[in-house]
Design a protein around this nucleic acid. Sequence first.
DNA 1: AGTTAACCGAGACGGTACGTCATGTCTTTAC
DNA 2: GTAAAGACATGACGTACCGTCTCGGTTAACT
Lengths: 209, 209, 209, 209
Amino acid sequence: MSKSPDATRRSERSRRAILDAALTLVGEVGYNKLTIEAIAARAGVGKQTIYRWWPSKAAVLLDASLSLSGEAVEEGGWTGFPDTGDLAADLKTVLRITVDQFLDERYDAPTRALTAAGATDPDLGTRFTEQLLEPQLALYEARLRTAVDAGQLPADTDLRLMVEMLVGPLTYRWLMRTAPLAHAHTDALVDVVLRGVGYVTTRPAAAGA
Amino acid sequence: MSKSPDATRRSERSRRAILDAALTLVGEVGYNKLTIEAIAARAGVGKQTIYRWWPSKAAVLLDASLSLSGEAVEEGGWTGFPDTGDLAADLKTVLRITVDQFLDERYDAPTRALTAAGATDPDLGTRFTEQLLEPQLALYEARLRTAVDAGQLPADTDLRLMVEMLVGPLTYRWLMRTAPLAHAHTDALVDVVLRGVGYVTTRPAAAGA
Amino acid sequence: MSKSPDATRRSERSRRAILDAALTLVGEVGYNKLTIEAIAARAGVGKQTIYRWWPSKAAVLLDASLSLSGEAVEEGGWTGFPDTGDLAADLKTVLRITVDQFLDERYDAPTRALTAAGATDPDLGTRFTEQLLEPQLALYEARLRTAVDAGQLPADTDLRLMVEMLVGPLTYRWLMRTAPLAHAHTDALVDVVLRGVGYVTTRPAAAGA
Amino acid sequence: MSKSPDATRRSERSRRAILDAALTLVGEVGYNKLTIEAIAARAGVGKQTIYRWWPSKAAVLLDASLSLSGEAVEEGGWTGFPDTGDLAADLKTVLRITVDQFLDERYDAPTRALTAAGATDPDLGTRFTEQLLEPQLALYEARLRTAVDAGQLPADTDLRLMVEMLVGPLTYRWLMRTAPLAHAHTDALVDVVLRGVGYVTTRPAAAGA
DNA sequence: AGTTAACCGAGACGGTACGTCATGTCTTTAC
DNA sequence: GTAAAGACATGACGTACCGTCTCGGTTAACT
């Protein structure tokens, strides 16, 4: 194997410049008109330095988005899912944050671009899902499992289905632009889903008294 | 006005050949590697004939997809949404058909391509949504309104939300490939949604007697 | 055969612009730093238009040189070799003109570049020799044959060798820069060669009287 | 002064490997496709080691050729020009050897490459001429001077011209490929030149006795 | 029936970006 | 401090498509 470059010699400076340039440019011109040459030029970097470390512009954007969510977490976002004991409130909180992110151009452009690219390119799609999406879904699922353990949700609830019922309709509306995003929308969504799976606020024990 | 070509002299032969070539090629090479030159070559048509009638390759694909759903209807698909009186059954039927379409490569490739392109290109996205998506969603909504009228759903049900809760999670799983598509999945989905919105099989009138 | 482009549709305007740009640039930056991109840019032409009609930058330069010698002829140069009856004088005249051409930067740069490229690239070399060199050598040979017919040169003279003895040393000095070029040099050259092959001014018949 | 490297610490091993690699590669791929990277890789050497000691790939090849002619001499070639007393025979001998060298691929490729490069690059050309060509021409000239001293050539013979009349036509035919090289060709060449400059076999003194 | 205006297949054109290759510089690690 | 190794910014390569633009040649429809 003499193919892969030596990662220990990699220039961190160039790496950051490339990711930053990619994020900036995708916001300026959109994904389709985003070119590797433009990224390289904006980053003050040779094209080869991009090709050496990434297989495609989509992959660059994926890494850029990963670094973006990394920053978001550091900047005071949530690492752990909120758990106030009130599942409905917690879900509404998180979905409202998600709505806000979708409405923030800074997140919208690259995320939309990646989602679209991933839908078309299976390889990228897989990595996008595994590295960006799944970790977030796992947080939802963990919070729901807590609720199950607390007896607030039936033990046989299909948590995966439930997570996607929360995230899916929001993502759908965002991607397809069928209607404007709003907090009221996700709040209502949470209510219907929770009622649908048989969520109870108080413990069955109390009800049985 | 010398801009728009004379549609009456348009060659139907070429139009069909172009749409067919576009569908074939998007299945073979994917949307990103689909080129207008290749479509023209495959269709045995001059490039100008494409540029004369469509503004972009996405627009060609959109028309191609429209013609595809037109065919689907003619081939014995459903025009009207099924209405057996059993809402749950009807929804499950339609969603199962949708699952089958997503699993059919013939539909998957162009639809996925269009969805992705529409997510990135607002103009195209709008037309995609209006011309392909909305008509389908309207059918769902009409069927749900029937159920409301029949007293099976609360009068104040947010039908739009409900439709997207049915279609959104399925589309999400399909686009993101978070899990394999299956009839059981959509069946469960329908059950949760219906329970969530307070669906009742029998009429309240009967219950109240 | 669907490979070769349709020459009847070729843009004469572009062709001329490319040849002119090539000649200008080879004079400005030299052959090694001459790039196809620069030719295209200077000519206001797409790169593909060059690649469509020529296989290499050397081939472009060859055509450019051919057009140059074409012009030279039209501009009042000699088509036919001079024939005053005095072979020595005629040869000296032509070689002096050749010296002048070698000293003219306008001819020197492209010719030198082509000669060098042809020395290294057999294909190009062959075409260079056949299309540019041989026609000139043939003129020499024709003039010498006239002299043979006039009895000024022995009937069994190796004309080919003689031509190369006239042209070779001059070309050698020009290419290798072993010494400055000068009219006196070629005059002396002609004298030695003519004496070497047994040139006589007057006819043997007169001598025998 | 931090410019020039310390030659005393230079690795002789690397130097030889680089020159050998250069000669091998120029034979394999030709001068135009010869790259410094390939030379470094083939020689098992870092690129910088080449750049440290040579200014260009042409310079490497020049050194390589110099080492080649050095070897040729050691392998039993001639250091001194032959001097049997018979000038015609001596010249024919040397030119035949030259023809043989031109026909030997091992010499042809690098020499042709250097000649071509030198024709285009004045700096290299000068060094090529001074270091490789002139020493050889000087040998010719020395032998001719001997002949002048022996009274076989007129005292006022332009020796420089004469040398180039011997070497020029051969080099011309070799470089331009106007005709195949052959011993008969150079033999005839010598004869014409010698006759042209007034070569006499026997000494005038003896004739006058 | 002849004219004419448009579409049509074809493909050359000026461009932009691609992904690759080599340049010459620089830095790191080993000797 | 030279050397092997190789990452880097630069820039040209030759290719693929873009969208525009002629070019005949075929169809209409309208004289």
